[in-house]
Write a protein that binds this DNA or RNA. Structure first.
Lengths: 198, 198
DNA sequence: GGTGTCATGTAAACAGTTACATGATTTT
DNA sequence: AAAATCATGTAACTGTTTACATGACACC
């Protein structure tokens, strides 16, 4: 599944410039490319050559000229083909799991700092994506089905982070590291953990 | 976070050949590289040059010679550094969300086929990773803390797929597409799958 | 006058995958 | 006799990121 699919998908509801495509891809929670120039302008040039898109150059007085890209009928057929291919399972890239796997290198205090750091990162991502969902730029059509699906896409991303948050909280509990221990009051969990881990 | 970290991590508990490292990385649920020769042998050569590992060539009569790699003190320091760097949030690569985003191209029957396909893929992944967890090859140390953490790593992966499964089931419900509607004598199948995978 | 946005593109480097190549041993 | 596994490595390609380069306009 290449970036071409994303570009065709975006263009299927609106004609746009490369620059605008770039911004949409960068801000999208599920189009997982960085949205850098190199990829987008190259992909557009290639798709122009193969007839999946056309462009219309808009000269502006003085300022740089715009190229507004429009999807062709062939492009729409290609998009439909991409939507039809057999679904692939999701892939997870969690560098933190590797840090955790070899956390034998760390003492319990350092490990807790890392867990807390990870928890904060996830909370940050949840907040960020909830905001993205709220403002919800860009949904192709405005049918009920489409609106529901696009909301569920946001829900998917947020629930993935939420699931991760629950997991890390459970892990910290299981390790007997509670906030209390490293600051406030310190209760039951602490006594238990001393037996096993100290 | 490069593949070097994974290699150092694996070598931190046992000296191994490139070939053995490759297999461990390929079979790991959280070391997200394909584990191809090119990357591993190149990384090992580079790490040998920079003194993070050493190797001992074991000539075998007739058969190809083995190179058994061992982590050095410098390598262990590097590993510790990697475990200490600020945690990054997880990244999700879900091509299916893109297919869903532009599923306006599909009719309701085609959409349901895709959703069912995705659900099956996820169930397949859950079964696969549950099996991996059961046989659990390779856990560095055998301390209680280490064993608990490695089990929680497996739990993380499985729960991510489980979360995805719940989401897709909810989506199908929301779209009003149930097994019953498409003639598969639904109620039992649905109930059964919940028992097995939730 | 500096920073930020709009708008196009290129160069170089790095990361990652597939496929190729060899050769012995073990299993079917 | 064929296929799979052990064990090493290389070549070619694709994908991806970072940085460079230009130039106008708007805002503070």
């Amino acid at each position: 599944m290449s970036i071409n699919f994303a570009i065709l998908g975006i263009l299927s509801s609106k004609s746009l410039t490369g620059y605008e495509l770039k911004k949409i891809i960068q801000e999208s929670p599920f189009m997982y490319w960085s949205g850098n120039n190199n990829q987008i302008y190259k992909a557009l040039a290639e798709m122009l050559a193969t007839g999946l898109v056309t462009n219309e150059v808009q000269q502006q007085e003085g300022s740089p000229s715009k190229k507004i890209y429009t999807i062709t009928e062939t492009g729409r057929e290609e998009l439909r083909k991409c939507a039809q291919i057999a679904p692939e399972p999701p892939e997870f890239k969690k560098t933190f799991l590797m840090q955790l796997a070899w956390s034998g290198q760390l003492n319990i205090r350092e490990l807790n700092a890392q867990l807390e750091g990870y928890e904060n990162e996830i909370k940050c991502q949840i907040a960020l994506h909830q905001e993205k969902r709220r403002i919800n730029t860009f949904c192709p059509d405005e049918t009920d089905r489409e609106l529901y699906i696009w909301d569920m896409i946001h829900e998917n991303i947020i629930s993935s982070y939420r699931n991760e948050l629950i997991w890390v909280e459970r892990l910290r509990q299981g390790l007997g590291i509670s906030y209390e221990k490293w600051g406030c009051t310190g209760v039951l969990t602490t006594a238990k953990s001393r037996l096993t881990y100290e």
